[in-house]
Amino acid sequence: GLPPGWRKIHDAAGTYYWHVPSGSTQWQRPTW
């Protein structure tokens, strides 16, 4: 699974990851 606080988001551009507490997003899968 993903580290705490991360969500996987799907949209028209593809899949990305959202860090809910900080509001940051990234294309790379977050690592622990």
Results as ranks from 00 to 15, higher is better:
residue 32 W to F: 13
residue 13 A to M: 14
residue 1 G to I: 11
residue 7 R to N: 05
residue 29 R to S: 08
residue 27 W to Y: 13
residue 31 T to G: 11
residue 24 S to M: 15
residue 20 V to S: 08
residue 30 P to W: 02
residue 14 G to M: 05
residue 18 W to L: 15
residue 9 I to M: 13
residue 18 W to D: 02
residue 18 W to G: 02
residue 22 S to P: 03
residue 27 W to T: 13
residue 9 I to D: 02
residue 8 K to P: 06
residue 7 R to M: 14
residue 15 T to V: 13
residue 29 R to G: 04
residue 10 H to K: 13
residue 12 A to I: 10
residue 27 W to V: 13
residue 12 A to N: 10
residue 18 W to F: 14
residue 29 R to Q: 10
residue 30 P to L: 03
residue 29 R to I: 13
residue 18 W to T: 09
residue 9 I to Q: 05
residue 25 T to L: 14
residue 14 G to P: 02
residue 25 T to D: 03
residue 14 G to A: 05
residue 29 R to M: 12
residue 19 H to V: 02
residue 12 A to D: 12
residue 2 L to G: 01
residue 19 H to Q: 00
residue 23 G to K: 05
residue 6 W to P: 00
residue 21 P to G: 06
residue 6 W to E: 00
residue 31 T to K: 10
residue 22 S to R: 02
residue 10 H to S: 14
residue 29 R to W: 08
residue 29 R to P: 13
residue 21 P to S: 07
residue 19 H to T: 01
residue 17 Y to Q: 01
residue 28 Q to P: 05
residue 18 W to Y: 15
residue 20 V to N: 03
residue 26 Q to R: 06
residue 6 W to L: 00
residue 31 T to H: 09
residue 32 W to A: 10
residue 31 T to Q: 12
residue 29 R to N: 09
residue 18 W to K: 12
residue 22 S to Y: 04
residue 28 Q to L: 10
residue 26 Q to G: 02
residue 18 W to S: 07
residue 14 G to D: 04
residue 1 G to N: 13
residue 32 W to V: 10
residue 22 S to A: 03
residue 15 T to S: 10
residue 19 H to I: 03
residue 9 I to K: 05
residue 7 R to D: 05
residue 14 G to S: 05
residue 25 T to H: 10
residue 4 P to Q: 06
residue 4 P to I: 05
residue 9 I to T: 03
residue 13 A to N: 14
residue 9 I to P: 01
residue 6 W to I: 00
residue 13 A to K: 14
residue 16 Y to W: 12
residue 30 P to M: 00
residue 28 Q to F: 10
residue 1 G to L: 14
residue 28 Q to E: 15
residue 9 I to N: 01
residue 12 A to R: 10
residue 7 R to I: 15
residue 8 K to E: 15
residue 7 R to G: 01
residue 27 W to I: 14
residue 20 V to L: 09
residue 27 W to D: 08
residue 12 A to L: 10
residue 21 P to K: 09
residue 11 D to G: 15
residue 14 G to F: 07
residue 3 P to D: 01
residue 27 W to A: 12
residue 18 W to P: 00
residue 11 D to T: 15
residue 26 Q to D: 03
residue 16 Y to N: 02
residue 28 Q to D: 14
residue 20 V to D: 07
residue 24 S to F: 15
residue 22 S to G: 03
residue 28 Q to N: 11
residue 3 P to M: 03
residue 5 G to N: 04
residue 9 I to V: 14
residue 28 Q to I: 09
residue 15 T to I: 13
residue 18 W to I: 15
residue 2 L to A: 04
residue 31 T to A: 11
residue 19 H to P: 00
residue 28 Q to K: 08
residue 11 D to Y: 08
residue 29 R to V: 13
residue 4 P to Y: 06
residue 22 S to M: 02
residue 7 R to A: 08
residue 21 P to H: 05
residue 10 H to A: 12
residue 3 P to N: 00
residue 24 S to V: 15
residue 8 K to M: 15
residue 30 P to V: 01
residue 18 W to A: 07
residue 16 Y to A: 03
residue 8 K to S: 08
residue 7 R to V: 15
residue 26 Q to V: 05
residue 27 W to G: 06
residue 31 T to N: 09
residue 28 Q to T: 13
residue 23 G to D: 07
residue 16 Y to K: 06
residue 21 P to E: 11
residue 11 D to N: 13
residue 22 S to V: 02
residue 18 W to H: 10
residue 13 A to V: 11
residue 16 Y to Q: 03
residue 7 R to Q: 09
residue 6 W to H: 00
residue 10 H to D: 13
residue 17 Y to S: 00
residue 3 P to H: 01
residue 15 T to E: 09
residue 3 P to K: 01
residue 27 W to E: 09
residue 23 G to I: 01
residue 23 G to H: 03
residue 23 G to N: 11
residue 20 V to I: 12
residue 13 A to T: 14
residue 5 G to T: 02
residue 13 A to F: 15
residue 2 L to K: 06
residue 13 A to G: 12
residue 10 H to Y: 11
residue 6 W to A: 01
residue 20 V to A: 11
residue 2 L to V: 03
residue 27 W to P: 08
residue 17 Y to D: 00
residue 4 P to F: 07
residue 24 S to H: 15
residue 22 S to Q: 02
residue 4 P to D: 08
residue 29 R to F: 12
residue 26 Q to I: 05
residue 4 P to H: 08
residue 9 I to L: 07
residue 4 P to W: 06
residue 2 L to W: 03
residue 28 Q to R: 09
residue 16 Y to I: 08
residue 31 T to Y: 11
residue 30 P to F: 03
residue 3 P to S: 02
residue 8 K to I: 15
residue 8 K to Y: 10
residue 25 T to F: 15
residue 17 Y to I: 00
residue 3 P to F: 05
residue 32 W to E: 09
residue 4 P to K: 06
residue 11 D to K: 07
residue 19 H to Y: 04
residue 2 L to Y: 04
residue 13 A to R: 14
residue 15 T to F: 09
residue 4 P to T: 06
residue 2 L to P: 06
residue 2 L to T: 02
residue 5 G to F: 04
residue 9 I to Y: 05
residue 30 P to E: 03
residue 16 Y to F: 08
residue 15 T to A: 10
residue 1 G to W: 12
residue 16 Y to V: 07
residue 29 R to K: 13
residue 15 T to K: 04
residue 24 S to E: 13
residue 14 G to R: 07
residue 24 S to I: 15
residue 19 H to A: 02
residue 3 P to R: 02
residue 1 G to E: 13
residue 10 H to Q: 13
residue 21 P to M: 07
residue 31 T to D: 11
residue 7 R to K: 11
residue 21 P to L: 09
residue 23 G to M: 06
residue 20 V to P: 05
residue 14 G to N: 04
residue 10 H to P: 05
residue 12 A to H: 08
residue 27 W to H: 10
residue 19 H to L: 05
residue 2 L to I: 05
residue 15 T to W: 11
residue 4 P to R: 06
residue 17 Y to F: 07
residue 8 K to G: 04
residue 11 D to V: 11
residue 16 Y to D: 00
residue 1 G to S: 13
residue 5 G to H: 03
residue 20 V to Q: 11
residue 20 V to G: 07
residue 4 P to G: 06
residue 19 H to D: 02
residue 31 T to W: 08
residue 13 A to H: 14
residue 1 G to M: 13
residue 28 Q to Y: 09
residue 25 T to I: 15
residue 1 G to H: 12
residue 19 H to N: 01
residue 1 G to A: 14
residue 17 Y to L: 02
residue 19 H to S: 03
residue 23 G to Y: 03
residue 23 G to F: 03
residue 17 Y to W: 06
residue 5 G to L: 02
residue 27 W to Q: 12
residue 26 Q to N: 05
residue 9 I to S: 03
residue 20 V to M: 11
residue 12 A to W: 09
residue 30 P to K: 00
residue 5 G to Q: 02
residue 23 G to W: 03
residue 22 S to L: 04
residue 32 W to T: 10
residue 27 W to S: 12
residue 9 I to G: 04
residue 8 K to L: 14
residue 6 W to G: 03
residue 19 H to R: 01
residue 30 P to A: 01
residue 26 Q to Y: 05
residue 24 S to L: 15
residue 11 D to L: 09
residue 20 V to W: 13
residue 25 T to Y: 13
residue 23 G to S: 04
residue 5 G to A: 01
residue 8 K to F: 11
residue 21 P to D: 09
residue 32 W to G: 09
residue 27 W to K: 14
residue 32 W to M: 11
residue 11 D to Q: 07
residue 26 Q to K: 05
